[in-house]
Design a protein around this nucleic acid. Structure first.
Lengths: 189, 189
DNA sequence: TGATTTACTTCAATTTTTGAAGTAAAATTC
DNA sequence: GAATTTTACTTCAAAAATTGAAGTAAATCA
């Protein structure tokens, strides 16, 4: 791993710090979490959870920046994620819920904002009048396209082939874990 | 969507997982996100980000459940994460910030709650009187220990050796990505 | 000595999340 | 076929979390 080669005496977090927070100078003197060289570092679920949150935050920051660059200021990263989750097909609110991120009242809240901003259309289904059918408006579609382009560009300029493979693998592993967590929550820990 | 016909109660993600986990009995005839056989599934950063958030949420839920089981009701998962981030040594607020998750005012907010609940002690450093030294109280230590035990137990009962290796790898890959994201945020996308 | 920087804290405004309650349509049961 | 239950959401209000601007006091620099 490159940063470990570059900064062999540092823990992961410190390497991160050094590169991402340029103006802070002090580095923690010890690194409790690392095993022998060449061994995979021992990673607790808490470490992992922390990383998940931090990564999410960073990503949100990136999306927010891209949004301002695109001149979008009526919705934020959270709403964008909903938008992208909808995709090119028509979905019901229930389907969005099943995709996993949201609680009912929460997605209602987001959908309202997206409707207000004219990013989505909601039509009550003919078959089942309880169910709302949701799809992107042209504006929503355009925004998604722009964001996907930006992501592609970004990916191309910053990630190598191996990175992408690693990420795909990470995705799978994380996904497994998420299911385990979900089941644990369901059927008692 | 085919997998919804097959697994009506599952979302996309779950169906995807099922395939990757090796239960190949019900493989969907069509797989939108997958390239050639033997190739890694294509995963966009948005998919990944969604997974990150969802996983975080799940994990928080689990921690919350564990907390209620332990009879702790004055702090939540977010505060617990700070507690665990502190660890067994004495740290300054700055060090906690550097560990990456938090913005200054935010951690102050959490630390206040942790102080109120008597989970941490704050002493102003003798050397540098601006700097607060923070460490766990006995109560805080105990809670961390309990949580770590629960996590260990959980890990043992639900994860195999391979899972753990996969997760360690995932951690590394994600960490790399996070660095990339952080740098992108810093030096313009 | 005065100016700047560091290391935080505080506060107020905003956003997000949660949970409880509500509504209306569909499905089920009696 | 009327009553009940379930489903598919929405709404609202309260709580929690986040942000950003300002403030304080100590350390460091010029």
């Amino acid at each position: 791993m490159t940063q470990e080669l570059l900064y062999p005496s540092m823990g992961l977090e410190d390497a991160l710090l050094l590169r991402s927070v340029g103006d802070r100078r002090h580095v923690a003197p010890e690194q409790p979490r690392r095993d022998q060289i060449g061994d995979a570092p021992q990673v607790s679920c808490f470490d992992l959870a922390r990383l998940l949150e931090r990564s999410s935050r960073r990503f949100s920051g990136l999306v927010a920046a891209e949004l301002t660059r695109l001149g979008v200021d009526d919705i934020g990263p959270a709403q964008v994620m909903v938008l992208l989750a909808i995709g090119d097909t028509e979905v019901s609110v229930g389907e969005l819920l099943d995709r996993g991120n949201y609680v009912g009242s929460n997605i209602s809240y987001y959908l309202k904002q997206l409707t207000d901003g004219d990013y989505i259309d909601r039509v009550t289904s003919q078959r089942d009048k309880r169910s709302a059918r949701i799809r992107l408006t042209e504006r929503g579609r355009q925004l998604c396209a722009d964001l996907r382009d930006a992501a592609k560009l970004f990916e191309r300029s910053f990630c190598g082939e191996q990175d992408l493979r690693d990420l795909a693998a990470a995705f799978q592993a994380l996904h497994r874990l998420e299911l385990v967590w979900a089941n644990a929550a369901r059927y008692g820990v």
